[in-house]
């Protein structure tokens, strides 16, 4: 089976400054990859390489087994949902028009179908129907994030890229959104790359976690493996607090509620048992 996304020896530098070094990575179809690392380590950069907003200095990025340089960029992007860092909405468009942005670009001039799709996605991300004609500045932070997610998903893409989408919301809303997103992933089988600088979020959401530092991959593994068996000192420090919070012996860390295994998805825990 070809990977949904694959990085082949990808490096990126701006002038003399190297930002990504020799990245080799395959993201399986249907995976929920969380990318975690401190600010400036290159998370956004590797995300934007998938939809061609950033071109690698060397190496290749493949989507569905095909080098994206070979593809029509506009076509490629329309098949990849993209929630930009901060989930910035188009301030001059209503909720409905924000959500239907990508479908409207496709010129599938079917209004009824677009309206129906908007209704469906608003329900899925938990937005009440009466917000449909509101403008972004008339929404709460959480509602704006939900619109951002719906907008990224509205054209039913195969891949969803999310760049710190829950950055600006309170803890409670964030928890709701995380649950929502995990459910959508489980229902649609979409491949997700989700960037965050929050370790517990990464561990809770991801079926795979990509830990990065200084433009290099430190570890790419399921969350429980990161907790149980950190590959580098950096990862160890990264997950230390989560480990302490769980206060479980190493071999049982997979059951920790802070990992993706414990809290959201039920089926990940069975994977854990096979690994353990």
């Amino acid at each position: 089976m070809t990977a949904a996304i694959e990085y082949r020896d990808v490096s990126k530098s701006y002038g003399d400054k190297s930002v990504i070094e020799h990245l080799d990575l395959a993201v399986d179809r249907g995976a929920f990859v969380t990318v975690v690392g401190s600010s400036g380590c290159g998370k956004t950069t590797i995300l934007k390489m998938v939809n061609g907003l950033v071109a690698p200095t060397s190496g290749a990025v493949l989507v569905d087994g095909e080098d994206i340089r070979e593809k029509d960029q506009v076509e490629l992007r329309r098949n990849i949902g993209y929630a930009i860092q901060g989930s910035i909405l188009f301030s001059h468009m209503t909720v409905e028009r924000n959500i239907s942005y990508v479908p409207s670009l496709l010129n599938r001039g079917n209004r009824e179908r677009t309206r129906a799709a908007v209704t469906r996605w608003m329900r899925i991300v938990g937005l009440p129907e009466e917000l449909r004609d509101r403008y972004p500045d008339e929404l709460s932070g959480g509602q704006q994030q939900r619109v951002g997610i719906a907008r990224a998903l509205a054209a039913s893409p195969d891949i969803l890229l999310m760049d710190e989408p829950f950055g600006a919301v309170d803890e409670i809303t964030r928890g709701q959104l995380q649950t929502e997103l995990r459910r959508i992933h489980d229902e649609t089988g979409i491949t997700v790359m989700f960037v965050t600088h929050d370790v517990s979020e990464a561990l809770r959401l991801g079926t795979m976690v990509l830990a990065m530092e200084g433009g290099k991959v430190q570890q790419y593994a399921p969350p429980e493996e990161l907790l149980r068996d950190p590959a580098t000192d950096f990862v160890r420090r990264l997950v230390e607090r989560e480990r302490r919070r769980c206060s479980l012996p190493d071999d049982l860390l997979g059951r920790c509620e802070h990992s993706g295994a414990g809290s959201v998805g039920g089926d990940a825990s069975s994977d854990l048992e096979t690994i353990a």
Partner: peptide, 9 residues
Amino acid sequence: EAARGMGGT
């Protein structure tokens, strides 16, 4: 970037 990244010409 959002507008472009989602596939706008």
